[in-house]
Simulated assay, not measured.
Amino acid sequence: MTQGNRKLAARITECGFSQAELARQINAEIELLTGKPGNVTDADIRRWLRGGTRWPQDRIRLCLEKVLDARAEDLGFVPRKKRLAPSGGRSRAPTRPPHRRRRYSPGPRRSVHT
């Protein structure tokens, strides 16, 4: 496992979970959280272990943290970076020429340009 998530692998081993059992536990927590069964599989766990997922979806990540009793960052996941707008944090809409919109009057087929 050269590029994989070693921290996650170590924690799974430490807790004594198989990949399938970890997926079942996460799904049970998702159901408690959302009221709907989760759909995490052992293939998802393998993808995480390979490093194919840098930051799991919120509900999955929260349940994973609960099951493994560790923060996602401590499990080797990397939070997504928030994009900042180049103008000091304020985003501006691109300037566009004004549109000519038609406003229809209730009369016989007349339109007025504004």
Rank of each mutant, 00 (worst) to 15 (best):
C15I: 00
T41H: 04
L8A: 04
F77Y: 02
Q19K: 15
A93Y: 11
R24F: 14
L32R: 11
L75Q: 00
G52M: 07
E21C: 05
L49E: 03
A93W: 13
Q25V: 08
A70K: 05
T95F: 10
G52A: 12
I12Y: 01
G107T: 13
P94E: 07
T95L: 10
E65F: 00
S18I: 04
L22A: 02
P56A: 04
L75E: 00
D74V: 11
L32T: 11
R103P: 03
R83D: 09
A9R: 07
Y104K: 15
I30V: 15
L8C: 03
R47A: 15
G52C: 09
L33D: 08
K81N: 09
A28Y: 07
R46V: 11
F77P: 02
R96T: 12
T53A: 14
R46F: 03
D42W: 00
T34M: 11
S105M: 12
V67T: 06
A20Q: 13
S91W: 12
R47I: 15
D69C: 10
A93T: 12
Q25S: 08
G52S: 15
P94R: 13
D74M: 09
R6M: 02
I12K: 02
R6A: 05
S87M: 13
T41Q: 09
A10F: 05
A43Q: 12
H99C: 03
R59C: 02
T53E: 10
R103L: 14
P108E: 13
R24I: 09
E73P: 03
D69W: 08
R96V: 13
I30M: 02
R90S: 05
A10C: 07
V78Q: 11
T13K: 07
P79A: 06
R96Q: 13
R109W: 13
P106W: 05
A10Y: 05
R50F: 09
R90G: 04
D69N: 15
S18V: 06
P86L: 14
N39T: 12
D58E: 11
A23D: 07
Q25C: 11
N39P: 00
D74N: 15
R109Y: 13
A70M: 06
D58Y: 07
R59N: 14
V40A: 06
C15H: 02
V40Q: 05
V40D: 01
R46M: 04
R90Q: 10
I26A: 05
R47F: 12
G76I: 05
D69V: 13
Q25F: 12
V78W: 04
L49C: 05
C15D: 00
I26F: 06
C15E: 01
R100N: 09
P97H: 02
P108Y: 14
G51V: 03
R6I: 01
D44Q: 02
R101F: 01
D42K: 04
R92E: 09
L62C: 08
P108L: 08
